[in-house]
Simulated assay, not measured.
Amino acid sequence: MRWVTFDCFGTLIDWRHGIRTSAELIAPGQGARLLEAYNRHEHAVQAESPAVRYRHVLAEALRRACEEEKVELGADDATVLAETLPYWPVFPDVAAELSALREAGWRLALLTNCDRDLIAQTRRRLPVPFEAVVTAEDAGAYKPSDAHFELFRSSYEPEVWVHAAQSYFHDMEPAHRLGLPRVWINRHGARPSDPSIVPHELPGLGGLLAAVETAAAPS
């Protein structure tokens, strides 16, 4: 019963590409600006309404981003992110590295700040199967709350458990609070405010199996 849990968007799915190109559909030439503005608003929306569906979060954060950047948003355009999310691209390193984990006997799970229906559509694009999924809809909260992690622990009782994710704030910090072995997938070369929180770091999924087994080894 060895498990690796993953965040999905940003770790396995190219979340930034998805938001940027989706924003281009409603505001050509403004995708990069709206992506950065969206990033500034999403967590605030989640913190204000932790039980609301992720579809609402996507729409409201995009509305606020457009208002901040003075980009006109059509009446029906705020739904564009939820509508395109199932087609956001999978990172090219996902198939080989997750397959290697499965072949080595690790079970895979997703802990995602997403709705059940949206992640179900996304899973059809992921090249390997996952044995478990915990969504924000299931947990009644958004990461960096501990709720996803606690629900996974109580539901599956993992004997060995490593968490791997791209977001330092949403994933590495709560995994650290809970004492979980963890691997930071630092796709954007970010600098952690506390390097001790991320003892195992990779620039992508390359070498993930070795990093996971090192993280899981008894200290």
Results as ranks from 00 to 15, higher is better:
54 Y>N: 11
37 A>L: 12
23 A>L: 08
20 R>A: 11
20 R>W: 00
48 E>L: 13
53 R>N: 14
58 L>C: 08
11 T>Y: 02
58 L>N: 05
21 T>A: 08
14 D>T: 00
12 L>Y: 01
37 A>P: 11
27 A>W: 07
35 L>H: 06
35 L>G: 08
25 L>V: 12
43 H>P: 13
19 I>V: 13
16 R>P: 00
30 Q>D: 07
22 S>L: 03
47 A>N: 08
29 G>Q: 10
34 L>S: 10
39 N>Y: 07
39 N>V: 15
40 R>D: 14
39 N>E: 14
21 T>F: 01
56 H>T: 15
36 E>G: 11
54 Y>D: 07
12 L>E: 01
24 E>W: 01
18 G>H: 04
49 S>M: 15
25 L>Y: 01
21 T>N: 09
49 S>V: 15
17 H>C: 12
16 R>T: 00
38 Y>S: 04
33 R>S: 12
27 A>H: 09
59 A>G: 03
54 Y>V: 09
34 L>I: 09
45 V>I: 15
15 W>T: 03
47 A>L: 13
37 A>R: 14
56 H>M: 14
26 I>N: 01
57 V>D: 02
54 Y>W: 05
30 Q>F: 02
33 R>D: 12
31 G>Y: 05
33 R>I: 13
53 R>L: 15
18 G>A: 00
58 L>D: 08
19 I>T: 03
20 R>V: 00
30 Q>N: 10
35 L>A: 05
46 Q>V: 10
51 A>W: 03
59 A>P: 03
58 L>Q: 07
33 R>C: 08
28 P>T: 05
29 G>A: 10
33 R>E: 11
39 N>M: 15
29 G>T: 11
37 A>S: 15
59 A>R: 01
57 V>H: 00
57 V>T: 00
24 E>K: 03
12 L>S: 08
54 Y>F: 13
36 E>R: 13
50 P>M: 07
45 V>T: 09
11 T>D: 05
